[in-house]
Simulated scan of single mutants.
Amino acid sequence: MTSDHGRLMDDVYRVQRRFYDITRKHYLLGRDHLITQMDVRPGQSVLEIACGTGRNLALIRARHPQARLHGLDISEQMLISARRTLGLRATLVRADACRFDPETLFGRRHFDHIVFSYSLSMIPDWQGALDEAMRHLAPGGTLHVVDFGDQHRLPRWVRAGLRAWLARFHVTPRDALPGALRNLPHLALHQAPLYRGYAQYARLTRRP
């Protein structure tokens, strides 16, 4: 599976993946908050969409060793790092977040937990990715999201500088994300800004 976006991401991360986790911990804030809020029961399935280096899945496994872990990413370069991080502890595949067949890729139709961690801001059709995730979220399952927020409580010059810098890496904060999540079919939805709006966190439970 190849695409223009996949080739772009491979070009971006061919070198960056080697030091990605060291540098990103300083500004991908809220990832650990998402993980600590996850209630994964033994045997439940977790899918991270755009799993990157596998850093989040490794931490989820440390907290929930009996979870069944799955990850997909459009960048084969990132999956090289993820496979080194996770080995046989997760099933990892190359796939497009907006269009994938979980039965073919993972041998299952639905997942109990689906995670988007700082990935929607890099997916051009991020709303399509959310819709695709919901199609594969089990009834009663939980969607977990953390990403850049609108930075509404930060000084205007900080917000402008941050967004200009992020754009250099093909990252666009999704200010419309809270509304898009409210429009998804759900039983319960919890949303919260983090770090004065620097990041946004959400947890959505699908109707049974």
Rank of each mutant, 00 (worst) to 15 (best):
R84E: 14
W126A: 11
F100C: 03
I114A: 01
R99A: 05
R108L: 00
R156Y: 03
Q151M: 13
T91E: 00
L105Y: 13
T53W: 00
H64F: 05
F106Y: 14
H70W: 00
G52F: 04
I114F: 00
A138K: 05
F116L: 07
L88I: 12
H136E: 01
H70V: 02
A167E: 14
A95D: 04
L137Q: 03
M122N: 09
L162E: 11
R159V: 11
I80N: 09
G140P: 12
P102L: 00
H110V: 15
A82V: 12
W157H: 15
W165D: 15
R68T: 08
I80K: 06
I60W: 02
H144I: 06
G107P: 10
S117Q: 02
P65R: 01
R55D: 12
G54Y: 04
S81C: 04
H113N: 11
M78G: 12
D101A: 03
P124C: 09
L143R: 12
A160C: 07
A90H: 02
W157N: 12
R94H: 12
A133K: 05
A129K: 01
F100E: 04
D147E: 11
G71Q: 00
M78S: 10
R89E: 11
V115W: 00
R135M: 09
L72H: 09
T85D: 02
R94Q: 15
D147T: 13
A164P: 14
T91G: 02
A160F: 06
A129R: 03
E103Y: 00
F100Y: 10
L59D: 15
A133I: 06
L154I: 13
H136V: 08
V115I: 12
L143E: 06
G128H: 05
R159T: 14
R156M: 07
R63G: 12
R84C: 14
R135A: 08
P139C: 04
A133R: 02
G161Y: 02
Q66T: 15
A58I: 05
F148H: 04
R89H: 08
D147I: 09
D125H: 05
S117R: 02
I60L: 02
